[in-house]
Simulated assay, not measured.
Amino acid sequence: MTTATEVVEKASPVVNIVQKIEALAKPRDLMKRAKTLEEDYAKSFFELGGVLSRIKTGIASKEAGFEKYQSFSAYVAEEHRISISQINKMIFGYESLVAKQIPYEKVATLPWSSLVALVPALTPENVDELVPAAEKMSYKQISALPVVKGSKDKTKAKAANAGVAKKGKATSAAPTPEAGEAPSADDKHAAVLAYLTDLGVTKAVALLKEAFPDANLALALKKSH
């Protein structure tokens, strides 16, 4: 019986990498393919990123066949010699190109580190211009390009705005005292908790220790839970 992996190996060259990855339906085929690709990941990083993306999703969703692994990090530590940070960059490069609908053939001349640096700025419209220029640059030079830095700044701003919107939504959901009405004890308690939460555990505990040097914080925290 021909396995999914053998089908991939014998596939016509015109079959693109995304279709190859989708042909690997079973967890054991995905993990076997990942092992094979890892042997020369400098050349196969894009496909490896796609296969590992599928594995990561399978483990997170507790798909049958991945039960052995408590987390994706545990899987990587047990099955691969590449670091989790490198693997996450490969996954990022693969998922970014697929999401932007940029064919891998357009960026295939770039080393994987250069592609990861450039991919935030790539679009279907500028890929033919940026890739040839990036071929002559180092990772640091690519990262310093205004178009790359601008894309990263936009991504950070978008994430920050999403965080502010989420926080604002949570704040608006809480009832507020009407004008002229004194805050109740519960309102004060909620405000203090919100303030301490924003500070973070370490700073909050330090502040409490300074305010109440004789208090048994461990006992108080235990009772609060």
Rank of each mutant, 00 (worst) to 15 (best):
K203S: 14
E181R: 11
I17V: 08
E67P: 05
K10E: 10
H189I: 00
T109N: 06
N88F: 01
P27A: 10
Y139T: 09
Y139N: 03
K26S: 10
P177L: 05
E95V: 05
A117F: 00
S151V: 02
L193T: 10
K89Q: 13
L219E: 15
Y75N: 03
K100I: 06
E78Y: 01
T171P: 00
S61Q: 15
H225W: 04
I87H: 07
K43P: 00
Y104L: 07
P120N: 09
V51W: 02
K222E: 15
S71W: 08
S184N: 11
G163M: 13
A64W: 00
A182T: 14
L207D: 14
Y75C: 04
A99E: 15
K209F: 02
P177W: 07
P13F: 06
K68G: 02
I55K: 08
T3I: 08
V119Y: 00
K89G: 02
I142P: 12
A25G: 08
L110K: 10
P13S: 11
N126Y: 11
N161V: 06
A215T: 05
K166G: 00
A121C: 05
W112T: 05
E210M: 06
K10D: 09
A77I: 01
S172Q: 14
K10W: 06
V192A: 15
L115W: 02
P111A: 12
V14M: 09
A215M: 12
V164Y: 10
A144R: 09
K68H: 11
L208M: 14
S83F: 05
L208P: 02
T5V: 15
I82Q: 12
E79C: 11
N16E: 14
P27D: 04
K140T: 11
A194E: 14
Y41A: 13
G163L: 13
E79A: 13
P27Y: 04
N161K: 15
K100E: 11
S224D: 04
V98H: 04
K10L: 13
S143F: 03
G150S: 03
K20N: 13
S73H: 04
P213A: 06
K223Y: 01
E125M: 03
A220E: 03
L118V: 03
E9H: 02
P132S: 06
M31V: 05
L118M: 04
P183H: 10
T36C: 01
A173T: 06
S44C: 02
L221T: 12
P146A: 07
E79H: 05
K89N: 09
E78L: 12
I91S: 03
T5E: 10
A215N: 01
A159G: 01
S114Y: 00
K188C: 11
P27N: 04
E95A: 11
G150C: 05
P183V: 12
I55G: 07
